[in-house]
């Protein structure tokens, strides 16, 4: 608890993120660039996976990982705010939402484009994987809309936290949807109980690309959190000035 409080200090966060965010931007961009180079130029095409179209994997799969991980992070931050009322946890949840929505939209869009030449369709309305990820996008958008509709910051944090925590149930549903229901989507090939089923030549660029996306996402979350802290400070100063006038 003491350690949590130490990390939840906005002054300490601003000092830490001042050097950590640029480092994450640089490392994230480098790893994404390396993954792109490997994915488009270096790795051999896999005829079993439809030829060159499998190269979409190096952007679609990291986007899917980030979509699920970001929602999980938002739910954990919301839980932390709900129990301990740390302002920084609420700021983190608020910062994650638009970025999580962006990566989820990227996952859906690239999945749809990949689906057309592979399955012969852009979209399948009764597919559990596609629909659960679409629901995830609506959860992110709903979270933002709900917060924006509240007339105070406290109410926005509370309503948003409840939605984020309840919506967290959708994340395991996405992960196991291909095992529990019939789906056009292939089974998991990286995160499985028996370990990765993918050949190393594809696995390493995919993992590095996933790490790059994660670092870039982390840098963007830190930047948005810094912006929110500055915005809240400005609002407090404005209120103090008005009270003094």
């Amino acid at each position: 608890m003491g350690m949590l409080s130490a990390f939840a200090n906005p002054h300490r966060f601003l000092a830490l993120s001042n050097w950590l965010a640029p480092l994450f931007y640089a490392l994230g961009a480098a790893l994404i660039g390396w993954g792109l180079w490997q994915g488009l130029w270096i790795v051999p095409k896999d005829e079993y996976q439809g030829g060159d179209i499998m190269r979409v994997m190096f952007i679609h799969v990291p986007a899917a990982w980030l979509a699920m991980a970001s929602y999980s992070a938002m739910a954990v931050a919301s839980f932390t705010w709900f129990i301990w009322r740390h302002e920084l946890a609420d700021i983190a949840a608020k910062a994650i939402a638009p970025l999580g929505a962006t990566w989820t939209a990227l996952c859906l869009a690239t999945g749809s484009v990949w689906g057309k030449p592979t399955w012969g369709t852009w979209w399948q309305w009764d597919d559990a994987r596609m629909m659960s990820v679409l629901f995830l996008l609506f959860l992110f958008l709903g979270y933002m809309a709900l917060r924006a509709a509240m007339d105070s910051r406290q109410k926005a944090a509370r309503a948003g936290a409840i939605l984020a925590m309840v919506g967290g149930l959708n994340v395991p549903l996405i992960k196991f949807s291909v095992d529990m229901f019939t789906s056009l989507h292939q089974d998991s090939s990286v995160i499985t109980s028996e370990g990765p089923k993918m050949a190393a030549v594809y696995l390493w660029p995919l993992l590095m690309s996933g790490l790059g996306h994660s670092l870039l996402f982390g840098a963007l979350v830190m930047t948005l959190m810094r912006a929110e802290i500055w915005t809240r400070r400005a609002a407090r100063q404005r209120a103090r000035l008005l009270a003094g006038a």
């Binding site: 488009l40 979409v56 990227l106 963007l220 912006a227 500055w230």
Partner: peptide, 27 residues
């Protein structure tokens, strides 16, 4: 199809980076 996917990535991620940096500067 492959270029369309990477183009979408460039637009969405690039747009997110620009939007976030501008928002932080404004704040």
């Amino acid at each position: 199809y492959i270029w369309a996917c990477y183009g979408l990535g460039l637009v969405l991620i690039g747009g997110a980076v620009i939007g976030v940096v501008l928002k932080a500067r404004a704040a």
